[in-house]
Design a protein around this nucleic acid. Structure first.
Lengths: 338, 338
DNA sequence: ACCATCAGAGTTAATGTTAAAATAGATTTT
DNA sequence: AAAATCTATTTTAACATTAACTCTGATGGT
């Protein structure tokens, strides 16, 4: 931190007390007109910048909020961050952004540091590898405002803002059923995260609703990235042809894209040999060789809702624990057979 | 900020002074073995989290650095942020991320707040609309470590990390010339930013090098977004057919994509009626109806270099002002005629 | 002429932490 | 046995700001 002008320096220069200078600069009452003018002049001349750190120490308010995300360069998260920023900027908060890189250890270390920096609240989207939520619980119990978004841990005392995963998953699966598919697979997300569980449940609900078989061999954990999708698809393709599904619900678009690569390498065509639907409407999805049918998640809106909820918790108004769902929209392209 | 355990509380509980507790927790010398054990135990039990704000006030070091970018959801910037994070995380710094939304006012307000929060340094990529650099100069003069990346203001006393814009622009323009084009247009970036100027200069150098005409009507300012590209293209298409260029160098890929839309709407085909090259290798570029030839910018690497330079300035080692260039790579696809 | 009121200041103390100096007791050196 | 050294600890002050109180002199009403 570079050397900076202080209130005291301005005060000495003008023969005033620090308190009067503070009052003048913060536009409080009980400062003479002429005095205020002199103070503001000196502040400008000396390039005064109020020391927010000292201010925070006194006020116990940092006007920073921590944001923990798994990967910045996954097109969905920048959208969410934009939404968060939109809300927090309006309330004069700034974002301390940390990336977990899908690594639980790094996630914990980041949260610990954010807490140490006395952020006024934290927004977290869990890493793929997160399975132990005890540290979260400790933080939440300490009273630090805490809201999950997109990838949530449920039942540990924090609100969660996500899309209506179960319903959306059921809906997009139903769409494949409507196309006449009876053998449908699911490349599922991490089984410890709500998002993984909910999408799986929605998938199962749709199958059950149409009395279709739920084949455990057709449910493969794939994570959230292209490579996971590729590997999961290979696993499914290793089944004998008559044992193979005819359609596939992927945990998200990157996974679907990975799966498509595996199919292409095996000379199979979409949607004839295998219909595919994704989740998240990646920026690439409409441009793929076979454009991907998917569930559009309003990332920007989700970010806004999460930030609004956190602001409410911080302000102590409507800070109760709740699950907020943002509604998705199906985008029908060619990969489902439409 | 939620109520938190303090050193003093731990000290009182154990009948020690705050200083001893501080030393125990920070693993300093001159603390008895047994005492240290008791302190660490109590700290854990009480859920102690060191108050980084108080620490910063004393040490004049916040271990936060400010990052100001124009748009988070432009695929290039998340890459850069990842690179920055990679470097800063290793040195225990965290990122205060702010988005200017291409708005100069917001940019200034953000920097002012970052300065107030006493970040240890600032990384800035200028907004499109930034034309007045006097506030930057004031900040730089105040001694706050400051590094520009990607979109720089030159000659105002700060280092700049960018790609070799001029050379790259010359190279990709040359490629169009090699394809036999003689009438080449340029949709240029903002004329106040180094990136806009350098790419224009590189473009001109290539034309001059082959004794081709530089037609002012074929140089249109387009900003950095799809819409700007669309509008600029329309302007060029309003020229009489014999007055039109046969090829186009866009300021970046989004601009090229906007231009392609305008061409498609006018029933013109790429690359037959108009060859196009872009800049930045957007994630969409390989997937376009006519895949876009472009210049790949190593965003992650650029972010790393920028962060490393800033760390050096902060540490006072090799903090001299310099322009660092990260090298690009041409990606040849169909849009140039290849 | 007296008291109440009020604007425009100043003073003190507090925020949580750490650097630097001081102290007390034990151990070693001379 | 006195002096020097060392270890474990406490004390004091400082970081920049602000809340809460206090002080001073002017104004105004009776």
């Amino acid at each position: 931190m570079s050397s900076n002008t202080t209130l005291k320096q301005i005060a000495d220069e003008l023969g005033l007390s620090a308190m009067t200078v503070s009052r003048a600069i913060n536009n409080r009452s009980n400062v003479g007109k002429e005095t205020r003018k002199r103070v503001l002049g000196a502040a400008k001349r000396l390039g005064y910048s109020p020391n927010h750190i000292a201010r925070s120490l006194v006020s116990k308010k940092s006007f920073s909020i921590g944001v923990v995300i798994p990967e910045i360069s996954h097109s969905f998260f920048p959208e969410v961050i934009s939404g968060i920023e939109e809300v927090t900027y309006g309330k004069n908060y700034q974002l301390l952004l940390t990336q977990s890189a899908e690594d639980y250890e790094k996630e914990i270390k980041s949260i610990e540091m954010l807490r140490s920096k006395r952020v006024d609240g934290i927004l977290v989207s869990c890493a793929q590898t997160t399975e132990d939520f005890s540290y979260y619980q400790e933080v939440i119990r300490s009273g630090l405002p805490f809201v999950f978004f997109d990838r949530c841990a449920e039942g540990i005392g924090a609100s969660c803002v996500s899309v209506n995963d179960r319903q959306s998953s059921r809906g997009i699966t139903q769409h494949l059923i409507d196309h006449g598919h009876k053998k449908i697979a699911h490349l599922m997300g991490p089984s410890k995260l709500s998002i993984g569980i909910e999408r799986l449940e929605g998938f199962k609900e749709a199958l059950r609703g149409s009395d279709l078989p739920i084949n455990p061999k057709w449910i493969v954990e794939s994570g959230f990235k292209e490579q996971g999708g590729y590997q999961a698809m290979e696993q499914i393709l290793s089944l004998s042809p008559e044992d193979r599904p005819s359609a596939l619900v992927a945990a998200n678009d990157p996974v679907a894209i990975g799966a498509m690569e595996a199919l292409a390498e095996n000379g199979l065509s979409i949607p004839e040999d295998m219909a595919i639907v994704g989740f998240s409407d990646d920026i690439r999805s409409p441009l793929l060789p076979c454009p991907l049918t998917t569930v559009q998640q309003p990332g920007y809106q989700l970010g806004m809702k999460a930030a609004e909820k956190l602001m409410n918790v911080i302000d102590g108004k409507n800070g109760f624990i709740e699950n907020i769902e943002v509604l998705t929209k199906n985008i029908y392209r060619a990969s489902c057979g439409c």
